[in-house]
C-alpha cells in the first residue's frame, strides 16, 4: 500500500510549492480583478495558514510537515527559496516567522442569530512578484536537490507533495525530463507527487480539472500536454476527496488543472494538501 504512511512529528510530510514569478503573472487572473501573481500568493499564504491551523495543538504548532517555497523568474533565469534565510523549514518555524501580519475581519453569528464582527490577525509569508522570464527547469532542479536530501532523512515518511503554479511555458528548456526524474524519487511509502496548476487569463476559459488523457486538452497547446505529462496520476485518497466535491476522476486522472481560475486554483491546493493531513497522528 502506498500513500498510507502516518504523518507524525517523527515522520513528517513535506509540501513544496513552486511559483512562477514571470512578467506575465502580472496579468489579471481570468474572472477576477487581481493579477495571477496576487491571487497565487494569496492562495498559497492561505494554504500555509490552513496547514498551520491543522497542526496547531494547545501546546503550539506541531511539526507534522516541512514546507518549502521556490519562486522562479523573480530574477532572470533564477529559481530561489522565497523563505527568508531558509530552504525547507518545519511548519512551526513558519508560524513563528511570517513576513508581516494583516488585520482581517470576519463575521461570527451567535446562537441567537446576531452577527458580530470580529478582527483577527492573518499572516503573510511572501508577496506577489511578477518580474522576468520562466526558468521552470531551474526550479524543478532545485526542488530535486532539496527533495533528494529530505527523502534520505525521512525514508519512511509520506512522500513529498510538490505543487507548481504557472501560467506559461518554461523559458530554460524542456521541463518534462526533470519532472519525470522528480516523480521517480520516492520514500518507502510511494513516489513524489507532482501537481500542476496552469493559470488562465481568459475570462471565459473552460477549466479542466484532473484530466485523464491529453486528448481532452487543446491540440495546439503544447504547454498543456507537457504539464499533463509532468503531473502524477492521482492516488486513491486524493481521488476520493475529488469525488466528494463532485469532480469527475478516473484511475488515470492526473494531478493537473488546465485553464484554472481562482476557484480551481483553491480547489487544487485544498485537495493537494488535505489528503496527507488525513494521515496526521
Amino acid at each position: 500500500m502506498t500513500y498510507n504512511a502516518e504523518i507524525s512529528r517523527r515522520n513528517p510530510g513535506l509540501f513544496l510549492f513552486l511559483i512562477d514569478q514571470s512578467r506575465s503573472m502580472s496579468h489579471k487572473l481570468g474572472g477576477t480583478l487581481r493579477s495571477k501573481a496576487q491571487e497565487a500568493a494569496d492562495a498559497i499564504n492561505r494554504q500555509i495558514y490552513e496547514l498551520i491551523y491543522r497542526c496547531t495543538k494547545s501546546d503550539g504548532v506541531r511539526d507534522y510537515f516541512d514546507i518549502g517555497i521556490i519562486g522562479y523568474g523573480t530574477v532572470s533565469d533564477t529559481a530561489q527559496s522565497l523563505l527568508k534565510d531558509a530552504d525547507l523549514v518545519p511548519i512551526s518555524r513558519l508560524a513563528e516567522t511570517p513576513l508581516r501580519m494583516e488585520r482581517r475581519k470576519e463575521t461570527i453569528t451567535d446562537p441567537e442569530g446576531n452577527d458580530v464582527e470580529s478582527e483577527f490577525e492573518f499572516p503573510v509569508w511572501f508577496e506577489p512578484v511578477a518580474n522576468s522570464n520562466t526558468p521552470m527547469v531551474k526550479a524543478l532542479k532545485l526542488a530535486q536537490q532539496w527533495i533528494d536530501d529530505w527523502v534520505a532523512e525521512h525514508p519512511d515518511s509520506y512522500p513529498p507533495v510538490v505543487i507548481n503554479i504557472s501560467d506559461g511555458a518554461a523559458t530554460d528548456g524542456d521541463p518534462l525530463e526533470v519532472a519525470r526524474d522528480l516523480m521517480n524519487m520516492s520514500t518507502n511509502d510511494g513516489n513524489v507527487l507532482f501537481w500542476n496548476c496552469h493559470l488562465s487569463e481568459a475570462k471565459d476559459a473552460q477549466p479542466l480539472t484532473f484530466p485523464s488523457e491529453t486528448g481532452v486538452l487543446p491540440a495546439n497547446d503544447k504547454f498543456a500536454s507537457q504539464l499533463f505529462e509532468m503531473s502524477s496520476v492521482l492516488p486513491e485518497g486524493f481521488k476520493r476527496l475529488a469525488q466528494e466535491r463532485s469532480l469527475e476522476v478516473s484511475d488515470t486522472s492526473r494531478a493537473y488543472v488546465f485553464n484554472a481560475g481562482l476557484d480551481e486554483l483553491m480547489e487544487l491546493l485544498d485537495i493537494g494538501t488535505r489528503a496527507p493531513t488525513e494521515n496526521l497522528q
Binding site: Y53, T56, S58, G60, V61, A95, E96, S118, F120, E121
Partner: peptide, 10 residues
C-alpha cells in the same frame, strides 16, 4: 496567545 493559537482557539 500567539496568533496561531488565538485564531484556532476562537
Amino acid at each position: 496567545l500567539p496568533w496561531f493559537l488565538k485564531n484556532k482557539a476562537v
